[in-house]
Every structure is written in C-alpha cells, then in structure tokens.
C-alpha cells in the first residue's frame, strides 16, 4: 500500500522533529524561518508553574465575580503554594470544593466569598480545609 510507505518515510523524516512544531518539509526549499521558529507560544509555560501540583477546576456560582472568577470559568489551582493574606484558594467546606478568599486574622483565618455571602471562620487546624491556591482564572469575556 503506497500510503504505508509514505507514513513510514514521514515518520523517519520526522524523527527528532516531534515537539518542534515545524511540519517537516520533504520537498522544496527549506523555510527561511526554520532556524528561528521553535514552536509557538505555549500557554502551559505561562499558566502552569508546576505541572505536578497544578489542577484545573470549573467554577459554579458568582460569589467571586469581583475577583474575575465567574460561573463557568476554569481556574488553575496549585496545591504546592502556601496561601498569603487575601490569596484566593480552593478550600473544602462541608465536604465540597469551594472558592474563597483567604483572610489572615489574629489567631485564625477567615474564608469568605468577595460578595460577603459566605463567611467561615476556621479553627486552629486550617490545613484540613485548604485544597490549593488559585493562581489563574480563565475568565470568559
């Protein structure tokens, strides 16, 4: 089958070409850009600090809309980060994953939505409720 030979040749020509993002040219003149083009912009490099600890979630509800996180948006959550005062976090409240702002208060932490509809004062054992720190919102405009 001629098709098979073509793919075979293609895969040989493509050896080492995988990941460069440049389709191999079997014939004709080489592209003048080939020494300069090293793949397009990769959103992963911009958005993901550490792929081992970064997870995607989808948001339900508009309690954090003021922070640019609306219903239906995807958020990136990094489990390896430590929240600072006013970080946006994913926390486990009543057995559910929730998006809250992390307010550091003397001796405690308060988890609240920016619209003030949900406010939870956390006891000593805050590690139990923190799931990760929200680093980005993929907000639809």
């Amino acid at each position: 089958m001629p098709g098979a030979d073509r793919f075979d040749a293609a895969s040989r020509a493509g050896e080492g070409g995988a990941g460069t993002g440049t389709p191999e040219q079997a014939h004709g003149f080489p592209s003048p850009a080939q020494d300069y083009f090293h793949g397009g912009l990769d959103l992963n490099r911009l958005l993901v600090r550490d792929r081992a600890s970064t997870f995607l979630m989808r948001v339900e509800g508009n309690g954090m809309a003021a922070a640019g996180i609306s219903a239906g948006d995807e958020i990136l959550v990094d489990r390896a980060l430590t929240p600072q005062d006013r970080s946006v976090v994913v926390a486990i409240l009543d057995g559910e994953l929730t998006v809250r702002r992390w307010h550091v208060r003397p001796g405690t932490v308060v988890l609240a939505t920016d619209d003030g509809a949900h406010v939870t004062r956390v006891g000593e054992d805050t590690d139990l409720v923190l799931w990760g720190v929200v680093t980005r919102s993929l907000h639809r405009v």
Partner: peptide, 14 residues
C-alpha cells in the same frame, strides 16, 4: 475523569 476531560473538571463553588 477530573484531570483528563474538559467537560468533567471538578466543580468548585463560589
């Protein structure tokens, strides 16, 4: 399939 399918992402409530 929380980590491999776009339409099955975990839901976080806000």
């Amino acid at each position: 399939r929380f980590t491999t399918e776009w339409d099955e992402l975990p839901i976080a409530k806000a």
